[in-house]
């Protein structure tokens, strides 16, 4: 069953269409990667899925119900997001920060109950951030902060997790750590993941299915070996590449070719 069903979505800003006539589905428990050059409309599409941006035409269904029929709170109870960077001018403690993930589930004057605290503890444990919980969010490292942001997203108890370049500014160790974590959540908790990634090799390595976007439309979608071909990449990114095979995972591996070679 498709948890997310996008039907001929067109949306954008100030009359300019950034995403044009996009149709795709994400099955329950799938791990979907969205790739494409800067300005291809990936983030804009995410904003439409979470209801921040109203579609100009087309529909977005979450579990067969149109997302525009959901209130903000209802969307936040089912869908959570993880951005590339989150600027935190006020240094809440890690615990307080993760507690904010319970916001859509708590009423205005309701104190977090044992159930909420358990979920927070679990989110901290999964993301390996338990020992950070009394630290301040601006005192921890970039890699730790990104895991804490993931913990907050998990505290929302999402059925669908949208990640917008979650590893863009991390070193390779932390990149693999975060993506392994998300893969584990996807496998063990059957959490549906849709992730925007710039790193084509990481996308091929972790995602079951890829969508290659270009100029607001879907250029190609399918399994990583179908999408990550040198023809597709050269056409969309206008860059010369060679596609090999990762000797361990047998997934496609994109090798860049600079002008000098």
């Amino acid at each position: 069953m498709a948890i997310l069903d996008i039907q001929s979505l067109t949306c954008g800003y100030d009359g300019k269409d950034i995403v044009r006539d996009v149709t795709f589905q994400a099955r329950q428990g799938s791990f979907l990667g969205i790739i494409g050059p800067n300005g291809a409309g990936k983030t804009t599409m995410f904003r439409a899925i979470t209801g921040i941006l109203k579609p100009k035409s087309g529909n977005i269904f979450f579990r067969d119900k149109d997302i525009s029929a959901f209130s903000r709170y209802e969307v936040a109870k089912h869908v959570s997001t993880m951005p590339q960077l989150l600027d935190t001018p006020f240094s809440f403690t890690v615990f307080e920060f993760v507690l904010m993930g319970r916001f859509p589930h708590l009423r205005r004057w309701e104190k977090p109950k044992k159930h909420d605290i358990d979920i927070i503890e679990e989110s901290l444990a999964i993301t390996d951030t338990r020992e950070l919980k009394d630290r301040r969010i601006n005192e921890i490292s970039g890699g730790e902060k990104q895991r804490v942001i993931l913990a907050q997203a998990l505290a929302q108890e999402p059925e669908l997790l949208l990640l917008d370049e979650p590893i863009a500014h991390l070193d390779i160790g932390h990149q693999v750590h975060i993506l392994d974590l998300i893969k584990k959540l996807n496998r063990e908790k059957n959490l549906t993941v849709v992730m925007i990634l710039h790193d084509l090799n990481m996308a091929g390595e972790y995602c079951d299915e890829l969508i290659l976007m270009n100029e607001g439309t879907i250029y190609k979608s399918g399994a990583p070996y179908e999408v990550l071909t040198y023809e597709n990449i050269e056409k969309v990114y206008k860059t010369i590449v060679v596609v090999k095979e990762n000797p361990i995972s047998k997934k496609p591996h994109v090798v860049l070719v600079s002008n000098k070679s």
């Binding site: 959570s80 989150l86 600027d87 935190t88 916001f103 859509p104």
Partner: peptide, 13 residues
């Protein structure tokens, strides 16, 4: 304080 985008994703107008 988390910014408009994140706030909206958490259900705040």
């Amino acid at each position: 304080t988390l910014g408009d985008e994140k706030a909206q994703h958490l259900g705040v107008n």
